[in-house]
């Protein structure tokens, strides 16, 4: 091992103490409580009282809860869009054009932008009467009677609107992961393919993309986990839409902090946790595969 077995026995714990305190109290403590509270009737106005599975049975018969879960699954549609955008961006940045580096910086700017600012900007672009997107659609497809989509009020367009914000804000981040992945594809391999007569498209399809498969899988999983946890984009971009157009986290927020139903909100949190856990476990398996 190291020469450092000489340290005093409590030295490691002193280094660890502040971090473990914060994680222990706020994350482990909360995780334990969210399970415990989920079995209680508990509101902003009364102390927790054990009610067994009642919160869960109520949730299961709550149509709004089911639509929130369904919408959260629909929200996973943002994942392929994110992968397509970020992969395209990475390939362009890495294509050897001279503007590659400044472009990489520029495409990262949305990642830096606070989500609420992104949402406010897209609210303007998606404005139902005058927004740029509806103007564009009317210009392109007005002859087919397509105009004025209710991006900010009508289901499922409200979900798509929030997804646009998620995709806009996120693709620069995943682009960086793809660029890291591209660095693992040796330039020599790609050059060899080019020398063997593969055109740029051939090299892309037969060398680069297959080599990026682990990266694509990784991004699919981590962006799915983020999609299941989405809050800001819905809360702000399509603010004020009816409860049945929300996803899981805004539903939990509304239940807890608007209606004061802490116990029921905790039960909904536990259900969401179980869904996310499935994706986290896939992520763990993928990571294990990469280490091997």
């Amino acid at each position: 091992m190291t020469s450092q077995t000489l340290h005093r026995p409590w030295t490691p714990w002193l280094f660890l103490l502040p971090a473990l305190l914060v994680l222990g109290v706020f994350f482990v403590g909360s995780a334990a409580q969210v399970v415990a509270f989920s079995f209680t009737r508990y509101s902003a106005f009364r102390n927790p009282e054990f009610v067994g599975l009642q919160n869960y049975t109520t949730l299961l018969s709550d149509r709004i809860f089911w639509s929130a879960i369904l919408n959260s699954f629909l929200y996973l549609l943002v994942t392929p869009a994110l992968i397509a955008l970020s992969l395209t961006a990475a390939l362009v940045v890495d294509s050897g054009i001279r503007a590659g580096k400044p472009l990489r910086l520029l495409l990262f700017l949305p990642v830096v932008t606070p989500t609420i600012v992104a949402a406010v900007a897209w609210r303007l672009v998606l404005n139902e009467d005058s927004g740029l997107l509806n103007q564009l659609l009317t210009f392109l497809f007005g002859w087919a009677g397509l105009h004025e989509i209710r991006w900010l009020t009508e289901h499922p367009f409200t979900l798509f609107s929030a997804m646009m914000v998620t995709a806009w804000k996120g693709f620069g981040f995943y682009m960086m992961i793809f660029l890291a992945g591209l660095m693992q594809v040796p330039a020599s391999t790609r050059e060899a393919a080019a020398i063997d007569g593969a055109g740029p498209v051939g090299t892309l399809l037969h060398v680069t993309l297959p080599a990026l498969r682990p990266t694509i899988a990784l991004i699919a999983v981590i962006s799915s986990i983020s999609a299941l946890k989405v809050f800001d984009e819905l809360f702000v971009t399509v603010r004020g839409v009816p409860a049945n157009q929300q996803t899981a986290v805004p539903y939990i927020y509304d239940l807890a902090f608007e209606q004061g139903a802490f116990g029921a909100a905790c039960a909904a949190g536990v259900v969401l946790f179980c869904i996310i856990l499935v994706f986290s476990l896939i992520n763990l398996r993928l990571s294990a595969g990469r280490e091997a």
Partner: peptide, 13 residues
Amino acid sequence: IPEQVIVVPMFKI
């Protein structure tokens, strides 16, 4: 443990 799932007990703590 996503923050979004445990926001209620975290608030109480």
